[in-house]
Design a protein around this nucleic acid. Sequence first.
DNA 1: CCCTGATTCGC
DNA 2: GCGAATCAGG
Length: 228
Amino acid sequence: MSWTEERIGTLTKMWEGGSTASQIAEQLGGVSRNAVIGKAHRLGLKARPSPVKAKDTKKAPAKKKAAAAPAAKPAARKPAAPARQAAPAAAPSAAPTPSPAQSGIPSQPMPNKQNDLPKIVSYGPGGFLRQGPGDQQPPIPPAPPRRLVPAKPSPEMAEKTSLLDLNERVCRWPMGHPGEPDFHFCGVKVNPGFPYCVEHCGRAYQAQLPRGARRPPPPLPFGGPRVR
DNA sequence: CCCTGATTCGC
DNA sequence: GCGAATCAGG
């Protein structure tokens, strides 16, 4: 993937909008978080609250691949004097995002201390801005439904891995069947490099046996007869 | 552990 | 210029 004008635009907007490098990378696709950060810096976009404070320039310089590059060129190394760290003091941005209007009820503009509304941005394919809190045309809050049913996960569904809980590092093996009230996913930490945990990898991946020597197949995760 | 951004440096 | 590797704090 190359940094086209458009992708740079997306990067810039999202970076300035407060999206994390990971989110930006995910949105752009084809690039890593590091690539995003690197590009952002090359674009001169930096200056964002970093978890890493300016480290002492006098010691603990990064040596890195000194071992890999044996005395090739000990060029004058600038331990990088982080003269940056400008001062976003005006807007330190503390609150992550209280996800407004979740209740569906038009809420009074809560007297947010500091009056610093958290920026909420969303980007569509191509990087256009879908919505911004400070925009002149905030979306009209939808009429609240007659009855707000609190999303109360049943006690037994708590702790269960739902579809939305799936990510790169939990086992996606389905437990039960879709549509059933207690359908969920295994959720155990995956066998690295696989979409399933070790146990379910054993079920998902089986050695190909010669014809005639096939074992009766194990129950299929989907499509098989329901056995309960 | 997970996440974050910053920095370096081989390519 | 690019981005993986690495660092370092939360």
